Simulated assay, not measured.
Amino acid sequence: MARKTSKRAAARTAKPVQFQPHDLLLAGIGAVSLGRKQAIKSYAYTIDNASDLRARAGAAVQDAVETVNDSVIAFRKKAKAKVGPVKKQVIALATEAKAQAETRLAPVLVKLGVKKAPAKRTAAKKKPVAKRPVKRTRRAA
């Protein structure tokens, strides 16, 4: 059996669309209107997001400050714990060295005239006792 093939319909030639000037004017007005609406929406969206962004940035900064403060406080505590005993030892050594230097260099400084010789301690002077008036008695003659 033979197969029937149908002929395709011949392509119709479409007439070119001709635009009138008022069509172009209406399309331009519509484009400007849509653009204006989109600009208003974008502006409102930007303002809303800016305030949200400001809040998020403030929270991030606050978290960073708290983290740094906690780290600094922990570091200070550790440093004080390690430095405390060493500080006491250094102060003790410094006072001992100062005392030894003063005792060893005292004679040299006296000879150079920088320091006066250490005064020898003398016993404290006592206040003279106030004299009591003498009672005179009459002698028998």
Rank of each mutant, 00 (worst) to 15 (best):
A14G: 08
V110L: 06
L93T: 08
A50E: 08
D63N: 12
S33K: 15
A39Y: 15
L109F: 07
G84P: 01
Q18P: 00
R76M: 05
I91W: 10
R139S: 13
T13V: 08
K116E: 14
V90Q: 13
K115D: 01
D63C: 01
K78N: 10
D63P: 00
K41A: 15
R132T: 02
L105C: 08
K120W: 00
K37I: 10
L53W: 08
A10G: 02
P21S: 05
D52H: 06
G35C: 10
Q38G: 13
A14C: 04
V32P: 00
Q89M: 11
G113W: 05
K131S: 01
T13A: 10
K80E: 14
A2S: 13
I91V: 15
K127R: 10
K98L: 13
K135P: 01
K131V: 01
R8D: 11
A57S: 11
E66K: 12
A14I: 05
S33L: 12
T95I: 04
K7N: 12
A106S: 10
G28N: 11
A141E: 14
T95K: 11
A59L: 08
K78G: 02
K127A: 15
R121V: 13
K87W: 05
M1H: 06
K80I: 12
S42L: 12
K87H: 11
H22F: 11
L105T: 03
R136N: 10
R104L: 07
A9Y: 02
Y43I: 13
L24H: 12
L105Y: 04
K15E: 08
V72K: 03
L105G: 03
A130S: 13
K126P: 03
K131I: 00
A64H: 09
R136V: 09
D70N: 12
R3C: 00
H22P: 00
D63V: 12
R136W: 05
E102F: 04
K77I: 09
P85E: 07
A123H: 03
T67H: 04
P21K: 05
K15D: 05
R76N: 11
G30V: 01
K131Q: 03
T46N: 14
A94M: 15
K115P: 00
V32K: 15
K41Q: 14
A79R: 01
R139G: 09
V86T: 07
I91T: 14
A97R: 01
A92Y: 09
L24Q: 09
R138H: 06
T5P: 02
D63L: 10
R121E: 09
P16M: 01
P107S: 01
Q100H: 05
A123M: 09
R132M: 01
A92M: 09
K88P: 00
K4L: 10
S6R: 14
E66Q: 13
Q62T: 12
K127S: 10
D52E: 15
A55F: 07
L25N: 14
A81M: 10
V129I: 13
K120V: 06
G35M: 07
A101I: 04
L53E: 13
